[in-house]
Design a binder for these strands. Sequence first.
DNA 1: GATGAATGAGTCTTCATTCAT
DNA 2: TATGAATGAAGACTCATTCAT
Lengths: 229, 229, 229, 229
Amino acid sequence: MASPSHHPARSAPPPRWERRKEARPGELLDAALDLFVERGYAATRLDDVAARAGVSKGTLYLYYTGKEDLFKAVVRRNILPLIEAFERDVAESSARSAELLERFLRQWWSSFGATRLASIAKLVVGEAGNFPELAQFFQLEIVARNAALLGSIVERGVRQHEFRPVDVGASIHLWMAPLVLRAIWMQSILPCCPVAAEVPVERMLDAHVRHVLAALEPLPALPGPRGAS
Amino acid sequence: MASPSHHPARSAPPPRWERRKEARPGELLDAALDLFVERGYAATRLDDVAARAGVSKGTLYLYYTGKEDLFKAVVRRNILPLIEAFERDVAESSARSAELLERFLRQWWSSFGATRLASIAKLVVGEAGNFPELAQFFQLEIVARNAALLGSIVERGVRQHEFRPVDVGASIHLWMAPLVLRAIWMQSILPCCPVAAEVPVERMLDAHVRHVLAALEPLPALPGPRGAS
Amino acid sequence: MASPSHHPARSAPPPRWERRKEARPGELLDAALDLFVERGYAATRLDDVAARAGVSKGTLYLYYTGKEDLFKAVVRRNILPLIEAFERDVAESSARSAELLERFLRQWWSSFGATRLASIAKLVVGEAGNFPELAQFFQLEIVARNAALLGSIVERGVRQHEFRPVDVGASIHLWMAPLVLRAIWMQSILPCCPVAAEVPVERMLDAHVRHVLAALEPLPALPGPRGAS
Amino acid sequence: MASPSHHPARSAPPPRWERRKEARPGELLDAALDLFVERGYAATRLDDVAARAGVSKGTLYLYYTGKEDLFKAVVRRNILPLIEAFERDVAESSARSAELLERFLRQWWSSFGATRLASIAKLVVGEAGNFPELAQFFQLEIVARNAALLGSIVERGVRQHEFRPVDVGASIHLWMAPLVLRAIWMQSILPCCPVAAEVPVERMLDAHVRHVLAALEPLPALPGPRGAS
DNA sequence: GATGAATGAGTCTTCATTCAT
DNA sequence: TATGAATGAAGACTCATTCAT
């Protein structure tokens, strides 16, 4: 009678399952991301992944060859689009270098660092020993590309005399590390320490941006004594 | 008596195994650290820990109540002495603030960041979800204390007009993050990417120290209105 | 229109699959025979059977109620025609008994023993414990009938004084066993031992036939001119 | 009172398990033999093996690395001693060749063919495709050695003019096959066909021995008084 | 008729933990 | 204390079977 089904007239029993070949992979990856992030690789049971995706255990194996494959797919699927979006954004922008740099950092934070995706970095780092291949993928396809992107912004700024000349290679790490580490922290330690009265993210972010821009600010061409220091 | 050996007076038959109640815990912790660092928490088998420590599996349970307990002991035992040493060093030092700060950063790197101990941070971060209590301990007893230490150096420098006034809370994170992240990276991703031609650690470290000190350098007294900012 | 289909009048859209109700069972049985023979009952997956027959897994269930049913059908379908052919051959023959017997043995070898069908015997023997009903069928419809056939030849020979009187029941087993066992061997052990330099089949077969005929050769009629033969 | 326990006075609870390192492997192999023989390799669950051996599933893995290893151990352990016993018997015997041959055949039957061990041959034959290595072992260490043994008896008899010259290679197979096949049959098909009124084993065995000895009997020394025998 | 996505019971295997010795 | 044999709960993975399309 009050059947939740969609056949109001007929009292057809609701189908035990639906055929949704297209949607399944995405649902499985979403479920897996949640659980991997929450519990880590080893502590995540495929039963739970399947249950959260609303399918049975066997179905999972129709789409992924096993736990490892699922894990790799989760990482690839969630991370790659992001880096590609970043690359598009930078390529299309024609703003001043300082502005572009600030926007990059803030966008990185809002679309990755502040999200659940940051946990993926944590996962990859934690499981690198057990998934060297995945670690390589991550280093080459994500970290290196992100660094190249940031590097290209800085180099452009330097070339156009918007930034002072710097050791780009070393600087990139210095500019990214505070964001990356804070992101990881917020996904792992922080949820366990509700009282950890940390400096708010915004303040950290502002300070970081200011700090980076200051470090890149062109030296005053003045006659000033500061050049001597 | 003082003999480390085996009851010379009593004509006891040589025991099949030795009683080494004092030495055991350390040996077990060392073995466990190796394996936890290498494989992560879940992938480390107690059998292997015991084997590496040269004892049987059962013996392990005489000293630790289980895997969790062992894990926590590994973290506590290896990390606490370090932070305490840092605190002593800083307390005893009377050097100029800039010098002290540089020494702190370089020592942090050489005695923690560049060592296997850095993996512990990786471990704790990765397992925080499964060991909240451990994460709290880590945050409060290690991270916070380290931050306080660094903060005290900076504050002293500011108070003595050796450093310019800064947002200490936000700055600390910015000063530590590049080192922490690089340390973690070297323990996880890097071993899997032998060709990753990164900027050498020394250059990164030099750049970072220079950068930190520049950011803290007192502003020129000058006539400048900039002091108002 | 120009559809290869079989409904010329109707402008039916070309079907995505063909209806081949008549051909399917045979194709499935052939595929199943291959795989059962190659891997045994349990290690054969219905997926593979269907794939080899060029249909989907579901289709298999339109023709057989399950794996067991398929297995039984494979055995029945492949073995029964053989024994029936043997029976026809013997019934129609009017050759001398010795000649008929030799022909029977050689034909048995060439049309069963030397072929993939011999593996069916191996299968039934191996799975008898799990398929008692099938074992009974095999014993009654194949083994016993084959024995009866051979027995009838021998008995006829004895009746017509072409063979010496023998214990027919016991003899039949002696005459068949070397062929059966060799056949099974060639389907199971031999493929794994490429170097097993066995006596060639032909020599074995010749020796066996000679041996059987010698054992059945009528005793010399006393005074003994038969020594000359 | 009549407690089977060994602590009559104390009401100590019976230990949940005993440490019986020496006995376990044998008990496990016995249990496994039973079940493999009864159900075949694939249909035997390790749970059942362990239960029949009176241990838990995990214990099985202390002694064998898995199902395959257990299977191989069952075969090796049960079959090798037999063939070695046969070899000893023949080596030590000094009987006449005919007598030795008959004894060999009868002993083979009673100590292997008529026992549960014959099922091992069935198993190996059935699983050869899935365990090629085991099949090789069986062929080389069991079948070939048994054939060599029988061959040596026949050759000795021929050399000493107790037997007529024969094609030893071909003959061996002819002499063994009826016994081997009957043995396999009795372990697989027969238990499923209680009414299969077969020729009794003894009669088959007698007929076979008679038949073999007749085929080997030296040819009459020409002039032929042998017709009288 | 035909398909193949979905199911879920069944099995092997691992490993933290216990306890008789 | 120390040992390591024994346990058993847990989880990855398979595959015969079902059923919505």
